[in-house]
Simulated scan of single mutants.
Amino acid sequence: MDNHLKIIAGFKEGESFVKDLYVTLPFRVVSVGQRKKDKKLYQMVMSSSPGILDGDHYHLDIKLEEKSSLQLQSQSYQRLFNMRDKALQDMKVTMEDNTSFAYVPHPIVPHEDSNFTSKAKIHIGKNSQIIISEIITCGRKHYGEVFKLKRFQNLMEIYHDDKLVVKDNVVIEPDLIPISSIGNLEQYTHQGTLIFYSTKEDVDKNGLIEQIVEAAAQYIEEMEVGVSAMEDNGFVVRALGHGGELMYNFFLYIQEILWDLDKNN
């Protein structure tokens, strides 16, 4: 089943707003930032479906017009159900100049025999920034479904001036690559990736990385966290752990730090 979500964030009189919105079942989008005073746009993506089903194809099309800021939020954990074939998700994000976009969704829970491929292609303008993440869990641990999925892939590409500046490809396929082997997740059951990329010139990349590393130190018993700096103004945060909620809250904390860098609106 093809499922569509399209949202355009506009900017007028110093405030970001929903300029256009189109959804099909099972999607629903609601505003969640009514009490915030920063004039940015906060939207939550909701679904009437219990999760992603065999044959589903999600199409997400997001556009930010100049000077707009949009933060998308998820409603709950995303379940990938048992599949005979596969399910797909394609996300397209177009960011004009002087924009800011953030999407830190809840963790993904792959059920036994699920097969899911997600691809995101992002075009970022000048003086802009993006914060985007994903967390993959081992599945329904209490049901004995520890990495019994068929395959999971999340491919992320970020372009600036039509040049590929960031590419991240996470693939989990337990039948081909033992998930607990050295160099993979080893003893851990949850893996998270958060990408931050900015085309602004005044970003203190090293200072932000130090702040994140210091914050991660308090979770040393529960998670292992590493940060890789990019040549440009950006970095990738990787986290390994045994629980999705702790990792998700840590990513939300990082999002809050980075989101406050955007003082345009």
Rank of each mutant, 00 (worst) to 15 (best):
V236F: 02
E65W: 00
T189K: 10
H123M: 13
Q191Y: 13
Q218N: 00
N115K: 10
A102K: 04
G144C: 03
D54P: 10
V213F: 07
E145S: 07
Y219E: 04
K200C: 11
I212G: 02
Y188E: 03
N233K: 10
H123I: 12
E256S: 15
G226W: 00
Q211S: 09
I52N: 12
K121F: 12
G226P: 03
K40L: 03
I172D: 05
W259T: 08
F152L: 13
D262Y: 15
I135H: 01
Q187L: 08
Y22W: 05
L70W: 09
E210W: 01
L5N: 05
S49N: 14
V29S: 04
Q255K: 15
E173A: 04
S100H: 12
K92H: 11
E231K: 10
T94V: 10
Q218F: 00
P105I: 03
T199M: 06
L185D: 00
K150I: 10
D85Y: 12
E15F: 02
N206H: 11
M247K: 00
G144L: 01
S128R: 09
I135V: 11
T193Q: 02
G244T: 00
R140L: 05
N154G: 08
F81T: 09
S74G: 15
N206Q: 09
K200N: 13
D260V: 06
F11M: 06
K119T: 13
F11D: 02
V227W: 08
L246Q: 07
D113F: 12
Q73P: 02
N233P: 06
S133P: 09
S118R: 13
D161S: 10
G234R: 04
I179M: 05
M95I: 01
I182G: 04
L72D: 09
G51S: 06
P50C: 05
L194V: 04
F17T: 09
F251C: 06
R140A: 00
Q78N: 03
L246C: 05
S69I: 02
K119A: 06
T99E: 06
F116Y: 15
A102M: 10
L176S: 13
I122A: 01
F101R: 05
M46C: 14
D260R: 11
Q43V: 15
E65V: 00
K263M: 15
S31K: 15
K19I: 03
A120G: 11
F250S: 03
L60N: 07
T117L: 13
S48D: 03
M95S: 03
S128M: 08
S48R: 00
H142W: 00
K167P: 05
M223H: 02
Y22R: 14
E231A: 09
T94H: 04
D262L: 14
E65C: 06
G125T: 06
G51H: 05
Q78T: 14
S74P: 06
I131C: 13
K19Y: 10
I52W: 07
D262G: 12
L21E: 01
Q71P: 05
V213H: 07
D54A: 11
I195F: 10
T193R: 07
K37S: 15
S16Y: 00
M230F: 15
F196A: 09
G125W: 06
P174S: 08
D20C: 08
H190D: 02
K92V: 14
D168G: 04
E96M: 03
G144K: 02
K67P: 07
V165C: 09
G243F: 00
N115D: 14
Y103T: 03
K200I: 03
M156E: 04
Y103F: 13
R35W: 02
